[in-house]
Amino acid sequence: MPEFVRYVLNGLMATVVHYAVLAFNLHVLGFPSAGLANLVAAMFGIAASFLGNRYFVFAHGARDAWHGQAARFIALYGSIALLHGLVMWLWADWLGNDYRVGFLLATAMQFALSYVGNKLLVFKQ
């Protein structure tokens, strides 16, 4: 299976984990805040994404020390999250455009940057 297809599948699975934990937090654990429930859920989604990238998408990376990869992964995703927020602020708040379109644009940028960043920086051969 091509690497890019594995990357897409891993992203979908991480999204399912994120959403499932979000729903669990709200409906089973009774979190009073959707924002807090989502923050906790995002940590599970990010962990699932890291593990899937390490062992499924870029399996050659499983030979390297996980802590160095984890640090680079967190730095990459933190930077992309800040950039995503900046794009949303510029698009919707500053320019007054529809936030839904901005979200799609920012998410497409996030998808591309995370693939390239994971391939070249985090799980490099």
Rank of each mutant, 00 (worst) to 15 (best):
L121W: 15
K124G: 08
L95M: 14
F103P: 00
H67E: 11
V8D: 00
A59F: 09
R6N: 08
L36R: 08
R72G: 10
W89D: 12
F44P: 02
H18Y: 14
V21D: 06
F123I: 07
H84S: 08
R54K: 10
G96R: 03
G68W: 13
A59W: 01
R100A: 08
A112V: 15
G61H: 07
L36P: 01
T15M: 12
F31D: 03
W66L: 13
W89R: 11
F4R: 01
V16K: 05
M88I: 14
L95F: 14
V122H: 01
M88H: 08
A47I: 09
W66R: 09
L105Y: 02
L39A: 15
N10D: 03
G96C: 07
G85P: 04
F56E: 01
A70L: 15
A62D: 11
G35R: 09
L86G: 11
L76E: 06
Y99M: 11
A92R: 02
S49P: 04
G117T: 08
A65T: 13
N97V: 06
V116I: 15
G52R: 01
V8P: 00
F4D: 01
L105P: 01
N38I: 05
Q110C: 11
R63T: 15
L12F: 11
V17H: 02
F31G: 05
A81E: 09
W89N: 08
L105E: 01
A92Q: 09
G85R: 12
H67Q: 13
M43D: 04
Y99N: 08
L26R: 12
E3Q: 15
G11H: 06
N97P: 00
F73Q: 05
F73M: 13
A37Q: 02
L83Y: 10
F111L: 15
G96I: 06
F31N: 00
A65W: 04
G11Q: 08
D98Y: 10
L120H: 11
V28R: 11
T107V: 05
V17L: 09
R63I: 10
Q125W: 05
I74H: 01
V21K: 04
A65H: 14
A81G: 12
L51S: 01
L26C: 05
A41Q: 04
L26M: 15
V16W: 06
G30T: 11
A106I: 09
A20F: 07
I46V: 15
H27F: 10
L12T: 07
A71E: 06
M88Q: 10
Q110R: 09
F50M: 03
A108R: 08
M88W: 04
A92H: 13
L83N: 03
L105V: 14
N25I: 03
Q69E: 10
P32V: 03
L95V: 07
N53A: 13
L51W: 02
G61P: 03
A23M: 14
E3H: 00
V57Q: 02
N10M: 09
D93C: 05
R63F: 07
